[in-house]
Design a binder for these strands. Structure first.
Lengths: 341, 341
DNA sequence: GGCATAATTTTACGCGCGTAAAATTTATAT
DNA sequence: ATATAAATTTTACGCGCGTAAAATTATGCC
């Protein structure tokens, strides 16, 4: 960084001894210019640290390099983690990711999509709110912007869907619980925000039938995204009423389980698989926090890396021109055995 | 939304019967045009749902309406929560917030600032990584872009600093612990990422001296932002060695406390203030998760709302032209009594 | 060395809007 | 009604870059 400040691409082209259109081409795709030219531009870049004006760039480009990443609730570490993962993959692939959270609010989700639309992104990685989402708005957005849906599926919209195999999740952990103790009952929200919850319930019912056990589902009240509190309150009520039919409780997700663990603590009920424990509790998701609950939570974890890799690559492929029919990819989870079950 | 698609402001101006420069003025600041004109534009807006091209807008505007919000680690729900709060205040004030996480990495923090710079933001709300931050890069950025520092202070850079009063935090909770049981020892990281940790240790030492007790600090090893794991491992070691001099442990922050609680669980040590409990554990921060630990964590909470409101307003005031000398605002925290101490 | 091909340069235009200055209209006060 | 200030319109230019077409130059190959 020596020379005076470079004001625009014209000046930068002059100092690097290359024509402006070629410089423009370089910034659009460094591989599209001859390697000797690329070397000269990069040498000049070291001297002058010029960066093209992104507004002027994006105004005229047919396709920006922007990628939107939208999650339902960024304050949920699960989504924060997957968003971070996706963000890094976008950067690595030469895109400019922008992060958005719907904050659990369908109206805000629509606003986010509107904002996103005005960003003219090359593509969007969208984890919809689910049940509460404005289907029509989503559909319209997907028809305008190349959108890959992840985490939670809403019909067959967008380019494709990538997420976890919730049937496998619940079947697998139900199997584990049945083999190691009393068959589990299933603890869930009556009106879950996320459609994955329905698959999990169904998978639980299937698995129990297959194993020859009688299923038992406890559906608790509660609206919104405060799952821990919903789980805690629902747990208190269920414990009070004796709604749990066995000593083993499989929760629809980890955050619900975390709330239930708190309820158990508050009711002085010892959780775990030891002889001195009254009940076993398991979750589903492999939530970043699940390692640190007391007891640490047995759960079945998303394959964060594989989900984000598959999702990101599918989007990039589509952006770069490969058209392929809508497809749903569901990845298996991995059982994580800890002390709670 | 009736009429055909509007391509640009020219067309929109035509259908609304207003000149383009006035329409432009409206979008820049709706209050700057006569109310009758505003009404006509807004009527047209209902009919045609036109939105100005943000790239063309920002290219020419001297000052964009963009505001960057940068936190050290978005997967920490504490930062996610404060980021959400700030984001909403920006929107309410008519700005366009963009969220960034440094992901705990000083090199990435610098990259974020570079990205931000090319966004030509009107202002930035920045929570620095702290000790690991590239001071020079931060300082240079602050001299180019109106930046308000929050959460963790780095010298006297930027427009101002807004955060919590860590001295008050620790003094207050230390006082509480002393009054209700054995005086606490202090559990912290040897090389904390965040400078607030130093203030808290110092405040602990001051408070203990003032109350006439002998302070005792346990400084544990560990690098990075995986505080729970650091707290858990450090907790195991300290418990093993009998490093805790009293039955009461005040942790430098909630995440460390969460890890310590897990260690206690794993060592079968009962935590709480009941007669059957061996030790008391308290945290600091009012972390969103602290309600759901087992036992629920006694802590002293940031005033999230007040911090974000003060920070946001200070930035907006500065953006809108009010120059005022650098100032540090530190807000008091509120004690939250739960079962752990 | 000559040729086909690819890369680059030249030239020129346009994107959608901000903005400034002067002319004109409208609102407000006297 | 008239003067004055404020808002709006007209006109015109420029921002920094993408992009297209044609002309030129460089590269690889036999």
């Amino acid at each position: 960084m020596t020379g005076g400040k470079i004001r625009n691409m014209e000046e930068f082209a002059r100092v690097s001894g290359i024509s402006r259109p070629t410089v423009s081409k370089y910034f659009n795709d460094p591989g599209s210019v001859r390697s000797s030219t690329r070397a000269r531009i990069e040498a000049a870049l070291e001297q002058h640290d010029y960066r093209p004006n992104i507004y002027a760039m994006n105004q005229n480009r047919k396709l920006t390099k922007n990628v939107g990443v939208v999650v339902p609730l960024l304050s949920d570490p699960y989504f924060a983690e997957i968003a971070r993962n996706l963000e890094q993959r976008c950067i690595a692939a030469g895109y400019r990711p922008t992060l958005f959270s719907s904050h659990g609010d369908p109206a805000f989700e629509v606003e986010v999509l509107e904002t996103l639309r005005s960003l003219k992104p090359a593509g969007v990685l969208l984890a919809p709110l689910g049940r509460a989402s404005d289907r029509q708005a989503l559909e319209k957005f997907c028809s305008d912007v190349p959108t890959l849906i992840f985490d939670s599926s809403v019909d067959e919209i967008g380019l494709a869907f990538v997420g976890s195999d919730n049937f496998q999740f619940t079947a697998h952990i139900t199997d584990y619980l049945c083999r190691t103790g009393e068959p589990p009952c299933f603890f869930e929200m009556k009106t879950p925000a996320n459609p994955n919850a329905h698959r999990r319930r169904q998978s639980y019912l299937n698995a129990m039938q297959e194993f020859g056990h009688t299923p038992h589902v406890i559906s608790i009240d509660g609206e919104g995204w405060g799952f821990e509190e919903i789980g805690r309150l629902g747990g208190h009520e269920a414990l009070q009423k004796g709604s749990f039919s066995t000593n083993t409780i499989l929760c629809s997700n980890d955050r619900l389980a975390i709330g239930l663990l708190t309820a158990c603590y508050e009711k002085n009920i010892r959780v775990g698989r030891g002889d001195d424990c009254a009940i076993r509790v398991a979750g589903q998701d492999g939530h970043p926090h699940s390692r640190y609950t007391c007891p640490p939570l047995t759960t079945i974890s998303h394959n964060y890396d594989a989900v984000s890799q598959t999702a990101a690559e599918a989007l990039f492929t589509a952006i770069e021109g490969q058209v392929s029919p809508w497809k749903s990819t569901r990845l298996e989870g991995k059982l994580i055995l800890r002390d709670s079950a």
